[in-house]
């Protein structure tokens, strides 16, 4: 819809306001993280003391490590299960319970986190009563919960990619003697790999960010980073959280910017190749 006229003054001012709205709070928070004073009202000069305080805060470091571990493991399993689900929905035409399966994939996307969290906790409690597993709730149960809701997102991403892919590529491979599993590994997975990678990143972020489901499914021993942050900020502003936020948001933004720059460059490269070839 690009037009020769370009956006009007009204539209331009809304755009400016909108982006200011999105970014000013983050930037202010980042600025405060370098404030020497513990009080937000006073600018006590530039300092990195909240950063060093953060590095010495064992609780936060441990929580961060736990969160990263859970995020990496759950993203990996969610990618495997989500990809299988996407394959089942687009490439296995008929099987019993397909209707229910489709619903099960879509439901976690719209389910309020409080309900997902509550129901998983009640499941774990009931399982413990019935079969004695899980003995206690902690990293394992959080990981299972995160796999469950992240795999739905990945299934949707993979499904969209598979739906737009020419199915005769896989048929051709099968025609040439590839068995179903070989076809999946030789043809399908390499071609949907970009979607799987972005799915993994999304699952990783979702897990790293989740508070509610983790709160429900965790036990006494394990606190993830969002749980620690939540308990701290519930009481109001804490300067070391400013520093933590700056580190997290800074790292994530940088990572995303680099990733999208790489993607953009490779796209330009292939389109240039196509023109020359």
């Amino acid at each position: 819809m690009s037009s020769h006229r370009g956006p009007s003054t009204f539209i331009l001012s809304v755009l400016c306001f909108g982006f200011a709205f999105l970014y000013v709070p983050i930037l202010v928070m980042m600025a405060y993280s370098f404030n020497d004073s513990a009080l937000a009202t006073v600018w006590g000069g530039f300092s990195t003391r909240w950063y060093s305080a953060l590095l010495n805060n064992e609780q936060i470091i441990n929580a961060a490590l736990l969160s990263l571990k859970i995020a990496a493991v759950s993203a990996t399993f969610a990618t495997i299960l989500g990809t299988l689900a996407g394959l089942a929905l687009t490439r296995m035409r008929r099987f019993r319970g397909r209707f229910l399966f489709t619903g099960l994939i879509a439901a976690p996307l719209v389910m309020p986190e409080v309900i997902t969290g509550l129901s998983l906790l009640l499941l774990f409690v009931s399982l413990q009563q019935l079969i004695g597993w899980p003995v206690s709730r902690g990293a394992t149960t959080i990981t299972i919960a995160h796999i469950t809701f992240a795999m739905a997102y990945i299934a949707v991403i993979v499904q969209a990619r598979l739906a737009s892919m020419d199915e005769s590529l896989e048929e051709a491979a099968m025609d040439l003697g590839g068995r179903p599993m070989q076809v999946t590994f030789d043809i399908t997975l390499p071609l949907i790999a970009p979607s799987m990678i972005s799915g993994w990143l999304l699952a990783f972020t979702l897990s790293l960010d989740d508070l509610v489901i983790a709160s429900f499914t965790s036990g006494a021993g394990a606190s993830t980073l969002p749980m620690v942050i939540f308990s701290k900020i519930k009481l109001g502003v804490t300067p070391d959280i400013n520093a933590l936020a700056t580190i997290i948001i800074g790292t994530l933004s940088l990572g995303i910017l680099i990733a999208s720059w790489i993607i953009l460059r490779s796209q330009r490269k292939t389109s240039a190749q196509r023109q020359s070839g």
């Binding site: 590529l169 051709a172 003697g177 390499p190």
Partner: peptide
């Protein structure tokens, strides 16, 4: 039986030689 597809279905992530070799590799 082998088939040549309407869309040709040439594997985009393999070279010409790899495409042709696929059936024998299997």
């Amino acid at each position: 039986v082998n088939m040549m597809f309407q869309s040709y279905a040439v594997f985009p992530h393999m070279t010409v030689a790899q495409n042709i070799a696929y059936g024998l590799k299997k």
